[in-house]
Design a protein around this nucleic acid. Structure first.
Lengths: 209, 209, 209, 209
DNA sequence: CTATAACCGAGACGGTACGTCTAGTCTTCTC
DNA sequence: GAGAAGACTAGACGTACCGTCTCGGTTATAG
């Protein structure tokens, strides 16, 4: 969905803003009911009360549409201040797990990631719409922990950025793998164990009660 | 692929054993060239020099076929003895990253995982053919580390199993996320940093040189 | 519809012969109900109880299909022996007019002729399937009239062929124009006047009662 | 195109007169390049430098537009005085054949005739705009022949009118059939033979040199 | 000189059919 | 009975036009 500058007033009938929202909502609805592989753009258009052409005028295909529809889900994530780094991590991971457990997220997200292995434009879209957008949570959590004195201030900015990426890959990857591949829920118990491992490492984690 | 008991030898022409291998190889070839979404069973049959009926007699559909074709790739993984737990982990993670970087693995694996969110039989097939099968690496690594004295012996068998699952989710998830979602290579430098984090936890990892 | 040699026995499932007939019948039915311009191949397929692919496997498009469907109609024409050239002409012209008055013939025939002005292959198909096929009527009528002594035997074969073409254009053209362009029925009275004109020419025809 | 009385002068901006001519010219141009079936009203509007709404305000659809665009072509026909009935007929038939040979006439005319078999309003439009309008040629030719003494004066006005219709159907039908269905040019030789047949009838025509 | 009304271009809209493609099944002949 | 070949039904694909609509703006007459 490309944003158009409000300055360059286009001639002709303007695009319907209701249609955009209706299509994205219909896409999520269809993902819930049918899943990625049985979702058809014709069906989405019908659900949205919109013609297929209207849909294709805005999105070039199923992949792009689903990325946008799923991306909105992750904007709900917030980092609640629970008083300690461990509790903050547990809180946000549980939220992330809750979103991933929703059928519209799981089916759609994995599928577009699969497609993105052969489509660089799609990969960029996923990264900018979803991944980079949510790294804010890691940044915010670290800053808060540093304020509390739980983590030292970083000295090398480049290394700091690499660390953010690494933590994001570990956290997001672990939750996704637990939920979708292993097929077990990322419930409170698991999240506690995972947080312990993340903070203390392999040696520490396995020895605590 | 359903196994048939050798006892109940059916009359008539026996199934060609070459066909099975040819079909799986053709599937991987098609995954490399076309990716999951553009792979068609008709095309796979043609590449394998086989009729579509032959293919459908053995596999019920695209998903099952691709799971079998991809599963074979991960059987290459071995855990080389490099002398320390950290080096063992680095070694096997690098191997895993190398397999994931191959186009037939990435596209196919993510796609069947996406499909498995709505198909329990498929989820079981993936788990038994791929996930559980490779947990041997974690078990073997832990046993070796315990022999070396790097890790304590576990006391509670149930907790020990849970820890294996957790580590597997963290390791596999992090590599998959790094490679396919973040879109950066899981190279030696990243693997070293990841291993440091895994062993020492957040506090330790960010302070070491 | 291409005829296949019975000698070269094709492998694989043979094409359904019932489907061919059902499609042509459905085409005529749709022409009656909808007319050329609102006839859709999807609808024809549905009426014939056949998938669209089956239809496209046999005909390359709407034009070719309609030519074949209409051509069959004109094979009903016969030249009844009524005893004199004039009566024979009247008889066959009335039959021709009756076919043209049927809605499946009128709408379809004119439309494919219109299309054939820009499609040489279609023009040839029309000529061979419809026009040349029905010139048998002119030939038979002339032979009969010569036997009766109403017409002299032709001496120059080339001129004789040209005359057949000319008569066919005049007769078919007049009936078509009367029926479809002028929009009046080619009834017995008109056919009698036309036959008089054709046999006697302008001078004679306008003076008789 | 509906004419509006100059008495009921409407307020508001008057319709552009240039637009009408531009649209009809663009229609003929598109007929030449694309033929009836590939002509689209959006394309015609673009060629005419006009919005689609402007086109639809004047014509209700493709059929009506093409009738008007084609009708103008036939107004070029004149009946030159060549001294005898036969020569007059040959002259006007050749002119008619020349117009029909133009691609914008052939494709468009046959197509609207085909459509008119299911649309009475369209049939009337064709008759009044094209057919009846050109019967003036037959009337004028007969009057001239009567003046010359080549044809007797008609006694019964009703029969005379029927004869005009008959001749028109025969002449127009034969040329159309020759040109579009048989696919051969209505050249001078053919026109001479046709005129001979028309004047002398079957018996006479085939015996003369 | 302003109001009003029909016009104009542009282009988005809901809808329908297109012709192609793939899925998964069925039917024939051959090994 | 397995297998190769290929036709079969079913249905989604993405595109193209249809005829309508909704914008901002223009050009005429009427007041």
């Amino acid at each position: 969905m490309q944003s158009r500058s409000p300055a360059t007033r286009a001639s002709g009938r303007p695009r319907s803003v209701e249609a955009d929202a209706a299509i994205l909502a219909a896409t999520r609805e269809a993902l819930v009911e049918l899943g990625w592989s049985k979702l058809t753009l014709g069906d989405v258009a019908t659900r949205a009360g919109v013609a297929k052409t209207t849909l294709y005028r805005r999105w070039s295909g199923k992949n792009e549409l689903v990325v946008d529809a799923v991306a909105e889900l992750f904007d709900e994530l917030v980092l609640p201040d629970r008083g300690s780094l461990a509790d903050d991590i547990e809180g946000v991971v549980l939220q992330f797990a809750a979103i991933l457990a929703r059928p519209e997220a799981a089916s759609g997200l994995m599928a577009v990631v699969a497609e993105s292995t052969r489509d660089d434009a799609l990969r960029d879209r996923i990264r900018s719409s979803i991944v980079e957008r949510q790294k804010r949570l890691v940044l915010e959590g670290r800053a808060r922990a540093q304020t509390r004195g739980e983590l030292p201030s970083e000295t090398d900015p480049a290394e700091a950025a690499r660390t953010v990426d690494l933590i994001f890959d570990v956290v997001a990857g672990a939750v996704v793998h637990r939920t979708l591949v292993s097929g077990h829920p990322a419930d409170e118990e698991w999240v506690r164990e995972f947080t312990t491992l993340l903070l203390g490492g392999l040696g520490a984690g396995t020895q605590e009660p």
